[in-house]
Amino acid sequence: MASDGVVVEIGKVTGSVGTTVEIPVYFRGVPSKGIANCDFVFRYDPNVLEIIGIDPGDIIVDPNPTKSFDTAIYPDRKIIVFLFAEDSGTGAYAITKDGVFAKIRATVKSSAPGYITFDEVGGFADNDLVEQKVSFIDGGVNVGNATPTKGATPTNTATPTK
């Protein structure tokens, strides 16, 4: 695992066909100046998982989280898009600690492993708008004895992609 920078880890949970599971997305290594904004994309298989919603985690402190935390689910493109932009203008609602960034709610549709993997990152910046190093650890849903650990090695991303 990367020793510096922010680590975004997609949790690994267990479920069975027809059940709804909650998959946490963790941030670790949050910089001392916090995270003022970030955007990134995960990939998944809508034939295996139906993403039914995404909720902000406990490290989102904006009293009205829909102003700073936004997501979009595109089953036709097989992606989930995340956007966080601190909304106070003063840094008061920045992410300042490690913990759960988001909770992905999904219904298991198939007995195949439900991988959720890193696809791309736009950027991560602290309260001074300084770009942060970030790496990703894939996860998803274990169905029966299947284990979604494909790509469990962190993917280092030093520069934003478009």
Rank of each mutant, 00 (worst) to 15 (best):
E120Y: 03
F69I: 03
G57C: 11
K162E: 03
P160W: 05
A112L: 11
V17M: 15
I95G: 02
T155I: 10
I60A: 15
F27C: 01
E131L: 01
G139S: 12
T147M: 07
T66R: 13
K150F: 07
I10N: 12
I52P: 06
P46A: 09
Y74H: 02
R105L: 13
I51A: 05
G114N: 06
I104G: 06
A146K: 12
G18E: 04
I10F: 03
Y93A: 14
I95T: 09
K97R: 09
G140A: 12
A92N: 11
F84L: 07
E22V: 04
K67P: 14
N47Y: 04
T90P: 01
I35Y: 02
K97M: 05
A125K: 00
I73E: 12
K109D: 15
V13Q: 03
G57Y: 14
T20L: 06
Y93P: 01
K78A: 06
V17A: 10
T66I: 13
A112W: 02
D45T: 11
Y74Q: 00
G151P: 12
T107E: 12
T20A: 10
T147Y: 13
G140V: 12
T159Q: 14
L129F: 15
K78D: 15
V30M: 02
T161H: 10
I137W: 10
K97W: 15
K109V: 11
E86C: 00
I35P: 01
T155K: 13
D76K: 01
N145Y: 13
P154A: 09
V17K: 11
Y44A: 11
F40A: 03
G11F: 05
F101P: 07
K103T: 08
Y26L: 14
N127V: 02
T20W: 07
I73Q: 08
V100N: 06
R105Q: 10
P65G: 09
D128M: 05
S135E: 04
S68K: 04
D45H: 07
I73F: 09
D58A: 06
V143R: 09
D126M: 01
E9W: 14
V13K: 11
T66E: 05
I51E: 02
G5Y: 10
V8Y: 00
S68D: 06
F101A: 07
L129W: 15
D70L: 15
I35Q: 05
D4A: 06
K103I: 11
D126E: 01
